[in-house]
């Protein structure tokens, strides 16, 4: 059965979705990811969806669910690399993913995770006064 690889990197877990998500795959990812967060005591989850061209409401809800589950397990989730067309589709579907943090690419996402978790930022950029999460969080 095909699975989406989940990589552990320090106190973060990385997921890069490189194939078309179908519903079963999404459910498997949910199982694997929650298990991995618990096993590795991860503090942050980074989901890269830059290869995802098509989303439906199910995938949108899954992203929201994963973020909520991770939060319950005390880990922050950042979704990165969303394509413009995907963003528009999700908004039109009425799924603005209010509880999910977002960033433009993996690099920014890592920065955001580090900033959120209070880990010193390693890159040369000046740290932003407030993290690039969205205002209500």
């Amino acid at each position: 059965m095909e699975r989406i690889p989940i990589l552990k990197m320090g106190e973060f877990v990385l997921v890069s979705i490189q194939v078309d998500m179908h519903d079963q795959l999404a459910m498997t990812l949910q199982d694997d990811l929650t298990a991995q967060i618990v096993r590795s005591r991860a503090k942050g989850v980074l989901i890269d969806i830059s290869a995802l061209e098509i989303v439906d409401s199910f995938i949108g809800r899954m992203l929201g669910n994963i973020a909520s589950m991770a939060r319950v397990l005390d880990a922050e989730t950042v979704v990165v690399g969303m394509r413009p067309a995907v963003a528009i589709t999700l908004v039109e579907l009425g799924m603005a993913l209010p509880g999910v943090k977002t960033a433009l690419n993996v690099e920014r996402g890592m920065e955001l995770l580090r900033a959120t978790l209070g880990t010193p930022v390693e890159t040369g950029r000046a740290p932003a006064e407030s993290p690039n999460g969205h205002p209500q969080n």
């Binding site: 963003a87 977002t102 205002p135």
Partner: peptide, 13 residues
């Protein structure tokens, strides 16, 4: 608000 939400999904406030 839709525009704001879409931009946020791309990681921009």
């Amino acid at each position: 608000l839709k525009t704001v939400a879409a931009a946020r999904l791309m990681g921009a406030d």
